[in-house]
Amino acid sequence: MSSASEVADAAERKDVRGRWLLSLPALLIIGIASVFPLLIVLVYSFLKPGSYGDVVWQFSPDAWVGVLFQRDIFDGTLSIADAHLSIFWRSVRLSLMTTVLALILGFPTAYFIATRPERTRAIWLFLITIPFWTNLLIRTFAIQEVIRNEGVVNGLLMKLGVISSPIQMMFTDFAIMIGMVYVYFPLMVLPLYASMEKLDFRLVEAGYDLYATRLKVLWRIIIPMVKPGIIAGSILVFIPSLGAYVTPRVLGGGRNLMLGNLIELQFGQGRNWPLGAALSITLLVIVMAALLIYVRKASNGGAHHG
């Protein structure tokens, strides 16, 4: 008996060591690719900027002060950095609007695909993902071609006589939002589709049978059941939108900056790496906070429903 348990103990110890060894590659990759670079960013944010980019190895909280405040060049007093705040606010606002619009468009799209016969579903999904295989920059310029003053939309509307002069769409927040919805649309549709595909449509029939109208069935049965897909899709669209760089750069011009552009500016023309690093971490914190709120709300909602 005792020898048997000893053997079992030894096997278990070996098992534990084996598990550690097996997880080592993953731990190494996480360490090198995620933790280490983040540490560099964090350290840089507490240093002084060099005159030609790079950093001077000297501790300074200036970059962190600069995230929210600006120093008057004459008397050195601090005031709120309106420019930064408005960029934060624009980033969050545009990302939220992008997420909502992508959800409004993506939900019926995913529902449509999920209710097709099984053999045609793959084709629809394929069509949704095709734009993803094209270079982001090219796709963004393609949108520019559609919405610029001499572009397809304005040209068509003017030809039809709906408008007499082109509507200014380029270099507006609207353009950025349209661009981001277009770019991140598949990230909304795919998780939505994944949860709708699992939806038991007999439950929908049961809803109709119990006097629920189409709208009530949507609200009381379909949406609660595909909620995981809604949450996943929204997170997948909101987070990259918040840090988007190419889309606001091309479609928003130089005037409508988002957080990604502001950060790029510090590492480029601004030659203020510590501020760029501090802004990057700020973005990270905003994303984490948004995620945390979402997850908490989602799990609360789940508990509420039973």
């Binding site: 007999r202 049978d209 006097y211 109208t213 059941m225």
Partner: peptide
């Protein structure tokens, strides 16, 4: 008439109970 306008109710083969609701709901 659509099903939600008929005073007829169904017990489904696999019951089709709403999994996100309690028994009472």
């Amino acid at each position: 008439l659509p099903p939600f306008k008929r005073p007829v109710n169904t017990v489904f083969q696999n019951y089709a109970l709403f999994p996100h609701m309690t028994v009472a709901q």
